[in-house]
Nucleic acid binder design. Structure first.
Length: 480
RNA sequence: CGGGGUGUAGAUCAGUGGUAGAUCGCUGCGUUUGGGACGCAGAGGCCGCCGGUUCGAGUCUGGCCACCCCGACCA
């Protein structure tokens, strides 16, 4: 049976994750090394992610565009750090139409270079700035080890690219999009992310500064799921993205880039999933409500179905994403388990007793068993469901937040304790951020700093690695 | 690329040198349906690939390949 025998979440986390992703029909491995087939249910989830992000990008004034999959090798080589950072993970096309190519083509690992080329052509005057572009695309990185959604050779994402007249404006844009990601993660995906700045060692290849949102998975590992980069003038200089300012002088632009990928779906699975399977936050669940009609015979069916139809129409009209499970010959219990496994937030049961009593049974996915099941009057059902969807969304965020907070520990100055903490959870410690200290921690704990959280109280304390006074705390955790 | 595993039905896996198996799923018919129903019938296999030993190999053996897990690299 497809929904039986799920590996419990605590037993073997990797196995549980792969199991859930495949059984809930989000995605499968493709017969191509490290590549993924996203199934309709998984893609519907991604479409909701896209919708919510696009809605925000519209508010921030970004426009969608599309750039080529193939990038001339020479483009990548124009920015030294960038090519160095990506070189090991590039897929390169050397033959086209049976002929060896004069210049090799890179399958984009990200589009800064080809977009930089375009920006150089589009921007002439300060009046053309800021230029705010977003692209929905696939990219390819030749990863050594892959996992469904979390790391695949090819993945889908959105990448935003902008150009500005000053460093400060570019920095403001970077932080604005950083906020957009955090807002999306917290309010749509119910993932309580921590906003932070990457250390110099961990920042994007070619960037001045990188910011990320960091989330805690169910096994207490960290997952970086949305990054924003202030690229300074590095790419502008490499691609000659220049404008004429008010004084008729040529200036280089200041550019940014930021991206969020299908990896967020893996995060949703790992943050919210339980022993019973997937749990999807109502706001992005492809199906928010599943209606299961129950009838023993044709008479009962004739009684129940008209009520189900009315109910379905009411909910659909109210803009709720519903599914009516009319499969014959499958017992209700089986359907209940299947939809729980697929993470649908609310199940509505309609049987002869309900029709008689003018009620329906409502079961919520965030609270399983009797405690989460109630019989409510048919009248005003839309309001009840709408309120419950909001409540479930809030409860899932609350549960994830409590779990996260219970597993972050502040460690000051005590390296031994630091090592004990990071072996199993997250540590927040004063950190000087030098390459030497980063290397020491990596060597001795097999992990690097996740970020310097923003919005921290000013102060200073001894760097956890070297003991010299540091002015910022960093988060440390094992990561995907 | 290092360390550890696994390759047998759609899935999960048994299989002691001697006729290829179980459970679930799938198809058909009937009975069922408020927490994973049942009966009967059926379909489905180059036992990862190539060689060796043997009268005989899913089983022993050599090589190759693929996949999974733990690292290194990374979103």
């Amino acid at each position: 049976m497809s929904s039986q025998g799920i590996t419990p979440r605590g037993e073997d986390y990797s196995k549980w994750y792969t199991d859930i992703v495949q059984r809930a029909e989000l995605a499968d491995y493709a017969p191509v090394r490290g590549c993924m087939i996203i199934r309709p249910y998984g893609y519907a989830l991604w479409e909701n992610v896209q919708h919510e992000l696009d809605r925000r990008f519209k508010d921030t004034g970004h426009e969608n565009a599309y750039f080529p999959l193939f990038i001339p090798e020479s483009f990548l080589k124009k920015e030294a750090e960038h090519v160095e950072g990506f070189a090991p993970e590039l897929a390169v096309v050397t033959i086209g139409g049976g002929e060896e190519l004069a210049e090799r083509l890179i399958v984009r690992p990200t589009s800064e270079t080809i977009i930089g080329y375009s920006f150089a052509n589009w921007i002439h005057s300060y009046r053309d700035l800021p230029l705010l572009i977003n692209q929905w695309a696939n990219v390819v990185r030749w990863e050594l080890r892959t996992r469904l959604f979390l790391r695949t050779m090819e993945f889908l994402w959105q990448e935003g690219h902008t150009a500005h007249i000053s460093h400060d404006e570019a920095e403001a844009e970077t932080l604005r999009m950083h906020d957009v990601y955090a807002d999306f993660a917290i309010n749509e995906a119910a993932i309580p992310v921590i906003k932070g700045r990457k250390s110099n060692q961990e920042k994007f290849a070619g960037a001045l500064r990188s910011y990320s949102i960091e989330a805690m998975m169910g096994d207490k590992k960290a997952l970086q799921s949305g990054t924003s980069h202030n690229l300074g003038q590095n790419f502008a200089k490499a691609f000659e993205i220049k404008y004429t300012d008010l004084n008729n002088e040529l200036q280089h632009c200041w550019t940014t880039s930021w991206g969020l990928s299908t990896r967020i779906i893996g995060a949703i699975v790992m943050v919210h999933g339980d022993d019973q399977g997937l749990r999807l936050p109502p706001r992005i669940a492809p199906k928010q409500v599943v209606i299961v009609p129950i009838s023993k015979n044709d008479d009962e069916k004739a009684l129940v179905m008209p009520v189900v139809d009315v109910l379905a129409t009411e909910l659909k009209t109210a803009g709720i994403r519903i599914h009516v499970d009319i499969r014959e010959g499958m017992h209700p219990g089986r359907k209940f388990n299947e939809w729980e496994m697929r993470g649908v937030p609310i199940r509505v049961e309609v049987g002869p007793k309900d029709v008689q009593n003018n009620t329906v049974a409502i079961a919520r996915r965030d609270i399983l068993g009797k405690a989460g099941k109630q019989f409510v009057p048919r009248e005003g059902i839309v309001t009840v469901i709408n309120d419950l969807l909001v409540e479930i969304q809030a409860n899932m965020l609350k549960q994830a937040t409590e779990f996260r907070d219970a597993n972050i520990h502040e460690v000051i100055g005590d390296y031994k304790k630091f090592q004990e903490i990071v072996a199993d959870s997250w540590a927040l410690s004063w950190f000087c951020g030098t390459a030497e200290c980063e290397a020491k921690i990596k060597e001795e704990n097999q992990l690097v700093s996740r970020c310097f959280p923003l919005d921290q109280e000013p102060g200073e304390g001894p760097c956890i690695a070297c003991g010299t006074m540091a002015t910022e705390r960093a988060l440390f955790a094992k990561a995907y």
